[in-house]
Each structure stands twice: as structure tokens, then as C-alpha cells.
Simulated scan of single mutants.
Amino acid sequence: MEKLYIFDLDGTLYEGTDHFDYYAERLATSVAEEKRLEYWNDYKKMKNGNHTVQIGKGYDVANDATLTIDAMTLEVVDAHDWDGNKLPAIISLYKNKEIQFDFEKIIAIGDGWWLPFVCAKHYGVKNCYPHYLETKDYMSSEKFNLDKISGLKEGLLKLKQKNKVVLITNSDKDDVERLMENLDLTNIFDEIISSAKKPSLTTEHFKKLQHNNKISYKNMISIGDNFMNEIAPALLLGIKAVYIAEHKAPITHRDLTHIHKIGPWIKQLT
């Protein structure tokens, strides 16, 4: 085995955002009717990058505070209320502390799933999980069209000829199996780690893979669209990282490659 490639799933091995909007629609049914217009206006601003809540930040549910986080140290460097006003008290609360994401009280806004979730929380929705399940049911129906990435399967199969390919995802086992079937990627990966609880357990997963495969960190590559989940933990261990995002990466690093799409990258790699 020459190298170990570690792939994320959502936002990495398939594209499209229709399911995020569907989730937002389902959540809207639990928002008080008189607040729904505000909910939709804020959600649209988030999607366009015109709101204090943005991908790459954190969210303190109890304090309704958006947290700007140093992706490499996981320390809070700034905090704002819903309208963008600075919150010195919240900044002091987290000073010199590594933030612990639990996905209930402290949210890592790592991808498009979390924008409608945070918006719904702000507007008083107590339990978002039933609507998440509704969205997952929608994604398994004929109504949902998954955007397959041209050349991805062929690229992964070529990588496997000399390397090992692993999938680490926060999705649960049933979701992963269904998505693998829909993407025609069943039996491609040498190992699949589901319900991974990234970013909290990302480093632990990487260390275990390194130990079990008896490979050096410099020969491992983490590929994903979530900087906090897949990229920063890799760079801190000396693992190379490939960040998939339309927007600029938050840092520059000798072991970091920034790409807009995975398709062209994997084609040139193989």
C-alpha cells in the first residue's frame, strides 16, 4: 500500500443542495407562523453569505451567538448576536478554551445541513431531528435526484489498485449504505466509518487508521468539504489535506490543497 486516502461523504462524493432546502422547508413547519417570513429571509441570507451565520463558524444555542473559530486551535476568536453585533461577554466566556462541539448546545456549522438547523433554533424550534428524518426519507425516494460526479467511481477504483481508500462520515450506517447504492459506489471502500462524530472524534479516527495500517501520517490524505471536520485535524497531525470549496480556504498550509470540485482532481490524480 502506497497511500491511505480518507474521504468524507456529504458534499464530497455527491453534489447538490436541494436536500438542504427541503430540510429548511420541513423545519419551517415548526416555526411560528408569524415568524416564518423572517425565518426564510434569514435562511436566504445565510445561503448567499450575507448573514452572521455562515459555514465555517460555530453556534452557541443557549446564547443564540455565532462564534468565529480558529479552525486550527478550535478557540473562539469572535462572537456576534443574530444581527451581527459583537458579544464581548461571550468572547470572554470562551477565552483560552478549546471549544467542544456536541451538536446540541454547541454546533459546528460545517456544511449546508446546519444553516437551516441554526435558523430554526433561533426561531424557537426545539426538536429538529424529526424533520431531519423526513429529509432523509425524501433523499431515499424517487423524488430526489442525486448529482453523481463524473469519473468519481473510475477514479476511486484506480486509486484502489495501489492504495487504500477509506470513508469517514457523520451519516449513520443505513444512510451510508443507501447513498453508496444510489451513487454506485457499493463495495468500493476498504473501510467505512459511519456515525463518526466529526469534528469531535476526527483526530481519534485518524490516529487509529494510522496505527492499524502501519502507515506514516505523511502518506495519508484527507479529502472533504468541511474544514473543521476533515481538514484542520489532518493538518495538525501532519496528514495532507484536500479541501473542496468554492470559497477561499481559511488558511494556507504546505500540506493543504484547495480545489473547487473533486471530479477534475481525482481524474488528474489517477
Results as ranks from 00 to 15, higher is better:
Ile149Pro: 05
Glu181Ile: 09
Lys148Ser: 10
Val77Asn: 00
Ala108Pro: 02
Ile188Tyr: 05
Ile91Asn: 07
Gly56Leu: 00
Asp64Ile: 08
Glu191Gly: 02
Cys128Thr: 15
Val125Phe: 08
Met180Ser: 14
Met139Arg: 15
Ile106Val: 14
Leu93Val: 01
Gly84Tyr: 07
Val53Ala: 06
Asp190Asn: 14
Leu133Lys: 15
Glu98Asn: 11
Tyr59Val: 01
Thr66Ile: 14
His80Thr: 15
Asp184Gln: 13
Asp184Leu: 06
Leu156Ala: 11
Leu156Gly: 08
Glu177Leu: 13
Glu75Ile: 04
Met139Phe: 08
Asn85Cys: 02
Ala89Met: 09
Asp111Ala: 11
Tyr132Met: 14
Lys47Val: 12
Ile106Arg: 06
Gly84Cys: 08
Asp70Arg: 00
Thr68Tyr: 06
Glu177Trp: 02
Asp70Ile: 02
Lys148Pro: 03
Ser171Cys: 12
Lys160Cys: 02
Asp172Ala: 13
Lys158Leu: 11
Ile55Asn: 02
Tyr94Thr: 10
Lys97Met: 07
Glu177Pro: 01
Thr52Tyr: 11
Asn145Gln: 11
Val76Leu: 00
Leu133Cys: 14
Val165Thr: 12
Lys173Gln: 14
Leu93Gly: 03
Glu104Tyr: 05
Asn85Ala: 06
Leu152Gly: 08
Lys97Arg: 10
Ile91Ser: 07
Tyr59Lys: 05
Gly49Asn: 03
Glu134Ser: 13
Val166Asp: 10
Leu156Met: 07
His80Met: 10
Asp175Gln: 11
Val76Glu: 00
Leu157Arg: 09
Ala71Phe: 03
Phe144Tyr: 15
Leu152Ile: 07
Glu154Phe: 01
Glu104Phe: 04
Trp82Ile: 14
Glu177Ile: 12
Thr68Gly: 02
Trp114Gly: 00
Asp175Gly: 04
Gly124Lys: 07
Lys44His: 04
Asn127Asp: 15
Met72Tyr: 00
